[in-house]
Design a protein around this nucleic acid. Structure first.
Lengths: 224, 224
DNA sequence: TGTAAAACAGACCGGTTGTCCTGTTTTGTC
DNA sequence: GACAAAACAGGACAACCGGTCTGTTTTACA
């Protein structure tokens, strides 16, 4: 009994950008919740209320749609959730901690864990197709590089001298990815806090007591 | 032109255990290489050279087959590759390091990365079905607990006093899982060594120079 | 206003999927 | 050897998949 959009027979408004966005929204959500193979384009058409012709006009194949989701949505999610907050933080370790805590808080408030969109798709599609793999690997690489760059910036400011940028970045991304994997499987975000605690104990964080308060830098974490 | 098994018309040997094992072998491999949804039972029948009736007799549904793979194969792989070597090592950190190095070496020699079977299936199936999720969560739990137990055992022997068992276990499993995820996506096992290095820098490893030589404790790493 | 391209609708199709079903052969047991 | 149960063979099937196709409507532009 919801309000129908009144499909007047003789009226139609072409909205290619809106249509494309609607499809990407639905596909992003479906790939995240059910995965690529488990999401049929029929499901997507129904969920987006879009005809087959329209969908095919914007995305000729399912692969093209997934590639668009990866390039435009998954990359943006990593940028929003991780890269921007870390770069904006007072230090890498501050930034990493705030992201872990923000995501954990978001998940706990939400009550369920759907996992990291990048890792979800990476596991399912990396071996399925080289194009998928390259696109996903690029996002991983950008994620790691942003953290490593931040470490180097910190070091030029005299902080965190003893930390290897590449290794710290790799460990951080790996710890987060793996923690999200466990959180999704256990449906419990607590492991994120365990991993963060283990991570913070790491390396020459000279001054384990400073900055005890939590700061809220990031916009709504899109990784849910 | 391979040697045919000579399917004599009037001869057949019932070998239920062998048949079951053959199917599980093929399914384990296919799920690892292509994933659950991308592996049709038709593919499995062909690869295992097994009739539909035979397969259905041992595994009534595809889900039952996957559950058997998880319970009997994935769990065993984690046990073989991780739990047993770590428990047998001189210390947790020794064990963790040897597993990381052994897996990295195996992957580099092999030339390609198919990822961690547990994480592969966990990402694809955790949200698809509660039975899948519980089975996979149990394996993650056992993995973490084994490492935490080893930390406690070390501590009772006077070693590694400052390490929190649960947090160290969570971070170790997460770092490995995430590193394998990146290694699979980048098709490069180098990130495993980066993560290990970051991990070893962590915590009060009193004596960063001891035990520089690598030791070979583990049997052939089944996680490929 | 005329017109061609873009945007969209919806039916259609060949191939695949997982499962079921009927029937045959083997095997353990008395 | 009789016989029931287990083990296996293989065809059948309905549902579904992704993609294509034809046709209609809207829109940009001259």
């Amino acid at each position: 009994m919801t309000v129908q959009p009144k499909p007047r027979p003789g009226k139609r408004i072409n909205d290619p950008e809106g249509m494309r966005k609607k499809v990407l929204d639905v596909a992003e959500d479906a790939f995240q919740a059910r995965g690529y193979h488990a999401s049929s384009i029929g499901d997507l058409m129904a969920a987006a209320d879009v005809s087959g012709g329209a969908l095919h006009h914007h995305f000729p194949t399912k692969k093209a749609l997934a590639l668009a989701v990866i390039d435009e949505r998954v990359a943006a999610a990593v940028e929003e959730t991780w890269i921007a907050p870390v770069l904006a933080a007072a230090s890498v370790r501050e930034g990493v901690r705030s992201v872990f805590e923000a995501v954990a808080a978001e998940l706990e408030q939400q009550g369920f864990v759907r996992g990291c969109p990048l890792n979800n798709l990476a596991h399912e599609l990396s071996l399925a197709d080289p194009d998928f793999r390259l696109a996903l690997a690029g996002i991983f690489g950008g994620w790691r590089q942003a953290i490593a760059d931040k470490v180097r910036a910190d070091q030029q400011a005299g902080k965190d001298e003893g930390t290897d940028p590449e290794r710290f970045a790799a460990l951080t991304v790996a710890a987060y990815s793996g923690a999200m994997s466990m959180a999704k499987t256990a449906q419990d975000a607590g492991v994120l806090r365990d991993c963060l605690a283990g991570l913070e104990r790491s390396a020459p964080s000279q001054g384990g007591l400073v900055a005890r308060r939590r700061n809220r830098i990031l916009p709504r974490p899109r990784i849910i």
